[in-house]
Nucleic acid binder design. Sequence first.
DNA 1: TCTGGGGTCCTAGGACCC
DNA 2: TCTGGGGTCCTAGGACCC
Length: 432
Amino acid sequence: MQKIFALVDCNNFYVSCERAFNPGLEGKPVIVLSNNDGCVISRSNEAKALGVEMGIPVFQCEYLFRKHKMEVYSSNYTLYADMSRRVMDTLAEFTPEMEIYSIDEAFLSLAGFSSSNLVQYGRLIRTTVMKWTGIPVSIGIGTTKTLAKIANKIAKRNPEYGGVLDITGHPRPDSLLDKIAVSDIWGIGRNLASLLGRNGIYTALQLKNAPDAWIKKHMSVSGLRTAWELRGTPCISLDQAPISRKGILSSRSFGRPVETLSELKEAIATYVSRAAEKLRAQESASSFVSVFLTTGRFKKDNEHHTDSASSYLPEPSFYTPELISYAWQNLERIFKQGCLYKKAGVMLTGIVPQTEAQLNLLVHSRDNQKKRSLMKVMDCINTRWGRDTLQYAAAGTTRNWKMRQSKRSPRFTTNWSEIPVVKASFPRGLST
DNA sequence: TCTGGGGTCCTAGGACCC
DNA sequence: TCTGGGGTCCTAGGACCC
């Protein structure tokens, strides 16, 4: 059966989440910042038009924020993750097969749907998501994921498509590919785009028609897959299986430089707890724990200092206290007195399913069942009542090294005390 | 002064095996 | 002087994605 993919992508997702709860932001330039209020990571169309670039550091564009009275928000991932879940739940109503590709994107399989009605169906999806969640989306449809991605991009840029474009059903798809720069193709980043440019290949159409041997030689098999996908041959399949991560990283920049070991220990314990929660959520255990510290990427070379240390566990573990103690040992090995650290992180690798963990003949601990129960109770309480309802003393209580988040909106949908308040005025006689 | 936080996949090269 | 022909596994680094 002919494959048909739809890529549904939320427009300016984080900004749209803020707008869903604050309609006053509609029509205004709105910006959402990265963690630690460092960079711009989401912009409304109005903000884009005023010249705020994606990924730009805040200190380089604050003058624009002030000049145009932009609405600026810290990121509120609790809210965005919950809104994402609502959008994905809605999309799942429209197809039996779908892949959640990122927090704001999903691929839907529309194989078997009548090809003459695809655009209409896309419009129905679009209006439903808007109605049920308040989030605007764009939809691109094609016979491969790469073509669906391109169709989505075109739909988003050209309002005349009404937010939905089926590139495969278009009378002259090549005329569309001719207008797409190679750098706009999924899988072609800055480096490959410049390599292609040096070889006279500037558009998606040119890449589609380039010889396989040349592509393979210069862009490896991934490049070849992209070219084939442009030609309509699916090489990248829909990945429905819930992902089991091969490495789990938890790291943050500090709100201010940190130089004491005790504060670093708090931070590392905090990051281990986060990483271990993710580990248990996928029912895995980790056998290798790494810790890194850095004084920041933007220092001059002689002032810049980054170090990391790792250790094998005697046997794979999902037990936070144990992981913290190994992480601390690593931390102590790399900590240097007098360094002003800007960021630290913990990486868990060597990940295996809990049921397949290779036990150690010599040190096997007998109370795994107890540890499992304890972790389960903690995870349940923290899921039910909010993150860190129960936390490790090792993670500290003041945490004044925490990242800056000076302009975060309320967690409208996940926290009872931050739920939106509706001010209603009732006609006389109806109020109780 | 101020610059996010996650991930994946591929290749090359070295160590080692028979 | 001449020096095989396969493999595997691991790591580092580079490319990409959101």
